[in-house]
Amino acid sequence: MNDFMTLKNQLCFAVYETAGEFTKLYSSVLQPFGLTYPQYLVLLALWENDGVTVKELGEQLNLGTGTLTPMITRMVANDWLRKERSKVDERKVYIYLQEKAHREKTNITSKVAKVIQSCQIEFEEYHQLMQQLTALQEKLKQRNS
C-alpha cells in the first residue's frame, strides 16, 4: 500500500506527464503555423463541424468562455477564424473557419500525423489507448456527477 502512494505509481501523475509530452510534441509541429495546441483543437473541432456558436465550441472542447474567447480573438486576428453575430439572436456568436484554415488543413494534419508516427505508436495500440482513456474519463465523470 505504501508503494502505491509514491509519485511514480500515481495514475493522475502519469496522465499529467503524458499530457505535457503531447503538448510539447504538438507545439513543435504547430509553432511554424503560429498555432498553439489549444488553437489546434479549435481547428479540429471546426474542421469537423464549422459554424458553431462559441458556447457549443466551448462545450465540445470542455473550455470556458474565459479561456475560449481570447483564443478565438487571437485566431481571428491571425486570419484562422471569423466571428459572426446571429441575426436572429444577438446573444449568439458563430465561429467560422477562414480560407487560411481550409487551405492549411492538409499541411497541418499531415505534419501532425507524421510526428505521431515518429513516436512508433501502432494503430492497434493507439486504438486501445483511446478506448481505455475514454472509459477512464467516463468513470471519472460518473464519480463527479
Rank of each mutant, 00 (worst) to 15 (best):
E17S: 03
Q120M: 08
M130I: 11
Q39G: 05
L129T: 07
L136T: 12
V52S: 03
I121H: 02
V52W: 01
K83I: 12
G34V: 11
L57Y: 05
Y96W: 15
K105A: 11
I72Y: 02
M130F: 03
Q39N: 03
P38T: 00
A19D: 10
A77K: 15
K8V: 14
K87E: 09
G34C: 14
E56G: 03
H102S: 06
L57I: 05
R82H: 05
Q117I: 03
E21F: 11
Q117L: 08
N107Y: 11
F123N: 10
Q120K: 14
E90M: 09
K111F: 05
L44A: 09
T6D: 13
R91T: 14
H102G: 11
H102R: 15
Q120Y: 14
K8L: 11
L30H: 05
V112S: 08
N144M: 13
L136W: 15
R74P: 05
D3W: 04
Y16H: 12
L43Y: 01
T69I: 02
A14I: 10
T65D: 13
T73I: 06
L136H: 14
K55M: 06
Q10A: 13
L61G: 07
K105W: 13
L133F: 03
A101H: 05
L97D: 02
L81D: 06
E48I: 04
L44N: 15
E59S: 00
T69Q: 03
L136V: 07
E99A: 06
V115D: 03
V88P: 01
Q137M: 02
P32I: 03
F33M: 10
N144Y: 09
Q120G: 06
Q131E: 15
F33V: 08
E124A: 14
K92C: 01
Q117R: 09
L35C: 03
T134S: 00
V42Q: 00
A135V: 01
K141W: 04
L97C: 04
Q131Y: 11
K55I: 12
Y37M: 02
Y40A: 09
N2G: 09
T23G: 04
N78L: 07
Q10C: 14
A101D: 04
G51P: 14
G58H: 07
R91N: 14
P32S: 05
I108C: 04
V29D: 04
Y26V: 00
N62F: 08
L41C: 10
S28H: 13
F4N: 13
I116K: 05
Y96I: 10
Y26L: 05
E124Y: 06
K139H: 12
Q128W: 12
N62H: 11
L133V: 03
T65C: 07
E124F: 10
Y40S: 12
K8M: 08
L133C: 04
S28P: 02
D3Y: 07
N2E: 15
T18D: 04
E21P: 04
T23I: 09
F4M: 15
L61I: 09
Q131S: 08
V112K: 09
E48K: 10
Y126D: 07
K139L: 15
T6A: 06
F22V: 10
E59G: 00
A19R: 13
A14G: 08
N62G: 07
L35W: 01
I108M: 08
E59W: 00
N144A: 13
C12V: 05
S27H: 00
K87P: 02
L25R: 13
Q132N: 15
L41W: 07
G58I: 10
Y26D: 00
G58K: 12
V88E: 09
V15N: 01
I72M: 06
L81R: 01
G20Q: 11
F33Q: 06
F33R: 08
E122Q: 10
